[in-house]
Structure formats: structure tokens, C-alpha cells
């Protein structure tokens, strides 16, 4: 049975008269990767800071059934985090920085392990003041993962990473997830989140727009075929007569529905002597889905007004 590792209920936060979080409710199952998505200023970092007990808030946050607040940090023993940017001591090397924060037994082993996992051997013994943005980011992620946390909170972890490092980090996150680690990740690189997140929480203007599985969110923007023929108008008419959905007719966009068969479609077109110039399958896209969801919320708000 899957259990909730983190639960947030009725979370509100104001800065002065400005409500930055309004009635936030969601939970995270153990061993899941949850993507926290929203525009700049939507409230993602504030949610993360509230979970980490570094700001006051109204509502309730529990980690492994233990309540967290600005005065109650005990549950954070099993949490690692990287918020906004990695804070590093410039006079320490990467290795020393890891040594500083390593706790418990086998500290040196933990440090070596992280250096190896994040491929930091090349620069681990350099002072962090000489690090590039990507190196700092790697070390920041390393610090978050250092003490074998059960929950890892990463705010824009891919910032400044080159494609190779991005892939390595993605693989590491998935591997840690497979070991039962739970992740809450915010990122503007939606294609990366799409690849790794099991669940998504979409937030806009401090409110949750949707909290669902990645699969459900992508279903809002289904997979489809794009077909180009020698006569698109004729083809569209033919497909519509045969109960296919045709969403656009410039290049025919045909959603893949439950009983869809590409063989049947091709046979239908060939039997009608239609020449197929191009055919390609496209998957649902998180960006498109997100825009649809946000547009939906906009329309809802318009209706309310």
C-alpha cells in the first residue's frame, strides 16, 4: 500500500496584505517524484520554504506524520533540500563543504559516495569560489542528497547544468527514487519534469490549479498523428464520415483515441486512393497541457467574474 510521506493541508501565507499562498492542499506518496509547476512568483518557493520550516505560515504540514513549523524542525532530519541557489562557503573546497554537512556514521564514505555519484571528482578539491554555476549547482544537489534523506526538495535543480550533467542528474534522481526517496522538484524545464515526475502540482497566483498524476495531465493533450496527403480536405471529410476525430485540417491532426488503429486508418486512406505525403506521431506535451490547464483556470475565473 502506498503511503503519504508529506501532507499539506490548508496552507496559507501572506506577506503584509499580499496573500501569496491560498488554501494549498496536496500530499506526496513515498517514493514518488512530484513536479511543482508554476510561473515565476506563483508561490512554488514559498511552499518549499514552508515545508522546510524557514517561514511562518497558517495551516498544517506533516512529514512522515510529524508536524513541521518554524519552531518544529525535528522531522527535517530526513529531508535534504536545495532552494533557489546553493549557498556555499567560498573558502572551502567542494569536498570540505560536503564534510562540513555530513552527519552520522561513515561521514567520509558519504562524502566520497556523493562525489562519485555526481561525477565531481575533477573539481571536488577546488575551492568553491572558483566554481562555475553548473559546478555549484551539482554541489548544491550533492549537499541535498548527502545524508541519505527520505524527502528531497529541489528548486530549479537543472539551472546552469549542461546537457550531459542534466542527464546525469536526471538518472540520479530516478535511481534515488527507485530506492524509495521522495522528491519535490520545481523546474522551468518542463521537458525534464515530464520525463521523471510521477505527479504534478500546478500552482498559479498562490492557488493550486490541479494536483494530479503526470499521465492525467498529459491526457489533456493527447497523443496524435499528423498526416499530410495530396488532398487534405478530401481526407478530412473521409475521416469524419468514418467517425475519426480530426482536430485541424492544414496538416491533419488526428488524436489517438482508445479504439484507434493506425492500420485501419491507412487502409481507409489507401482504399480511397489518397496519397500519403507524410505521417508522424507526436506525444502529448507538458507545456501544451499546462497552458491548457492554465487557460481553463483563466476561463473559470472569467466565468466567476
Amino acid at each position: 500500500m502506498e503511503t503519504n510521506f508529506l501532507e499539506i493541508s490548508n496552507l496559507h501565507k501572506s506577506f503584509g496584505h499580499k496573500n501569496v499562498l491560498k488554501n494549498i492542499n496536496f500530499s506526496m506518496q513515498k517514493g514518488h517524484i512530484v513536479g511543482l509547476i508554476g510561473a515565476n512568483g506563483a508561490g512554488k518557493t514559498t511552499i518549499m520554504k514552508a515545508i522546510l520550516g524557514i517561514l511562518t505560515f497558517d495551516g498544517k504540514i506533516t512529514i512522515a506524520n510529524q508536524e513541521v513549523s518554524i519552531n518544529q524542525h525535528r522531522p527535517l532530519e530526513s529531508v535534504g533540500a536545495l532552494i533557489e541557489y546553493p549557498g556555499l562557503y567560498p573558502y572551502l573546497t567542494g569536498r570540505e563543504q560536503l564534510r562540513l554537512f555530513a552527519t552520522g556514521k561513515n561521514r567520509e564514505e558519504k562524502v566520497n559516495n556523493i562525489i562519485q555519484k555526481l561525477h565531481m571528482e575533477r573539481f571536488a578539491n577546488q575551492k568553491t569560489k572558483s566554481y562555475s554555476l553548473g559546478m555549484k549547482q551539482k554541489l548544491g544537489v550533492g549537499l541535498a542528497l548527502l545524508n541519505d534523506p527520505q524527502l528531497v526538495i529541489l528548486d530549479e535543480p537543472m539551472n546552469g547544468l549542461d546537457p550531459k550533467a542534466t542527464k546525469e542528474l536526471r538518472d540520479l534522481i530516478v535511481s534515488e527514487k527507485n530506492n524509495g526517496v521522495t522528491f519535490l522538484i520545481s523546474s522551468h524545464i518542463l521537458s525534464e519534469l515530464q520525463r521523471i515526475a510521477d505527479d504534478v502540482v500546478v500552482i498559479n497566483h498562490g492557488e493550486i490549479v490541479t494536483a494530479t498524476t503526470m499521465e492525467n495531465l498529459l491526457a489533456a493533450n493527447k497523443k496524435f498523428y499528423l498526416i499530410e496527403t495530396d488532398n487534405n480536405q478530401l481526407t478530412a471529410d473521409l475521416l469524419l464520415r468514418n467517425n475519426y476525430q480530426v482536430e485541424q485540417q492544414a496538416a491533419l491532426k488526428i488524436p489517438i483515441t482508445d479504439n484507434f488503429s493506425i492500420n485501419n486508418l491507412l487502409q481507409l486512406l489507401l482504399s480511397a486512393n489518397i496519397t500519403i505525403l507524410d505521417i508522424k506521431q507526436q506525444d502529448g506535451d507538458l507545456e501544451e497541457s499546462l497552458l491548457q490547464v492554465l487557460d481553463g483556470q483563466g476561463a473559470q475565473n472569467d466565468n466567476l467574474n
Partner: peptide, 18 residues
């Protein structure tokens, strides 16, 4: 100094209280 290095936050979001 902790504020300048951006390390104050990482000192606080651990199991230890302020």
C-alpha cells in the same frame, strides 16, 4: 557572512531549530 554567502538558509532547513 552567512547571509552574504547564501548559507544561512541551508543552516536553518535542517533538524536544528533557529
Amino acid at each position: 557572512k552567512e547571509r552574504q554567502f547564501g548559507t544561512l538558509r541551508s543552516l536553518l532547513y535542517r533538524k536544528f531549530s533557529y
